[in-house]
Simulated scan of single mutants.
Amino acid sequence: MSSTAQWVRQHRLTSFFVLAYLVSWLPWAFDAAGLSLGTPFFPGGPLVAALVVIAFADGRRGFRELGARLVRWRVGWIWYAVALGLPVLLVLTTGVLMWVLGAPAPDLSAIVWADVALVLAFRMVNPADSALGEEPGFRGYALPHLQDRLSPLAAAGVLGVLTAGWHIPLVALGNLGWIGLPSTVLIAFLYVWLFNRTGGSLLMTMLFHASQGALTFGMLGSTGAYADRAAYVYFGVLVVAVAAVLGLDRASWRRAPESATDAEPEPVAARR
């Protein structure tokens, strides 16, 4: 084994996060220097990082494990409803609260649900989109390794902060309001809860992520200043949702199921 492969194997998580940030942020650096690479931010960095680290550190076993998580679909219909419906419910709840606070009533008749389904499907297969670009790396690869060392609660907090930090260029570019960063930390807890409750199904977290961006505040009629306010209300809705899963399902936060951790733990000597 080469010295590079040995180092990556001993520092899987460090290698993954450094590479995920580097691949996604590099276009931002070039763009700031006036040398455009076609996009100022590449959402597929976590996917690329996971594949590279697996190739160096885990080989076929790692690819088989990631693939198995991706096709883990026998989880019960209720979890499909959660993965697809919870993001929609969060947005609709935000729209209703905005209406209560004085915004125009959500225009549900304006939503073309066929278009929502089409966007969701496209996000599942487009590596330059967040669902396929992020989930195999953040939840499919990093989370099982984090949960091999930490409780699900601690792993969710660490992963939430690191994924929020990864989004910083989007704030600088004006594509994401600053409130999106703490919202990203919070929603990580919902991803971890869904991942663990479905036995480590990457498919469920991808469906959740795709659904999260398929229905937007704009589709409910919240545009301009109302859309900006909606982001803050959405943060409050997330606080309640996360508090609910933490308080009502306490057992799931103590220990992750074996199927949602690294299937082949690293030697103790390698965990530095």
Rank of each mutant, 00 (worst) to 15 (best):
S2C: 05
W7I: 07
V8A: 11
V8N: 12
R9H: 13
L13I: 15
F16E: 00
F17N: 12
L19G: 02
L19Y: 14
W28R: 06
A29R: 04
D31I: 06
A32I: 06
A33D: 02
L37D: 08
L37R: 00
A49N: 10
V52L: 14
V53L: 10
I54L: 15
A57T: 03
D58I: 01
R60V: 12
G62F: 06
E65W: 04
A68I: 08
R69Q: 10
R74M: 06
R74N: 10
R74V: 03
W77S: 08
Y80L: 10
A81C: 04
V82N: 00
V82A: 05
L84F: 14
L86K: 06
V88L: 12
V88E: 01
V88M: 08
T93G: 09
G95N: 07
G95W: 00
G95T: 03
V96L: 15
V100Y: 09
L101C: 00
A103G: 11
A103V: 06
A105D: 12
W113A: 11
D115I: 09
A117R: 09
A121T: 12
F122H: 07
V125K: 03
N126H: 07
D129K: 05
S130E: 14
G133W: 05
G137P: 09
G137E: 08
R139F: 04
A142D: 09
P144V: 01
H145G: 00
H145C: 05
L146Y: 09
D148N: 06
S151Y: 13
P152Q: 09
L153S: 06
A154S: 10
A156R: 02
L159Q: 08
L159I: 02
V161I: 15
H167D: 01
H167P: 01
P169N: 02
P169M: 12
P169R: 08
G177T: 01
L181Q: 10
V185G: 03
L190R: 07
W193S: 13
F195R: 03
R197Q: 08
T198D: 02
L202S: 00
L203Q: 05
M204Y: 02
H209Q: 10
S211G: 13
G213L: 11
G218M: 11
L220C: 05
A227N: 06
R229E: 11
R229C: 06
A230L: 07
A231R: 14
L238P: 03
A241T: 11
A243E: 13
L248T: 11
L248F: 14
L248N: 01
D249A: 15
R250Q: 14
A251F: 11
A251R: 14
S252A: 15
R255A: 15
P257W: 11
P265V: 06
V268F: 04
A270T: 13
A270N: 03
R271A: 07
R271C: 14
R271H: 09
R272W: 14
R272P: 02
R272V: 14
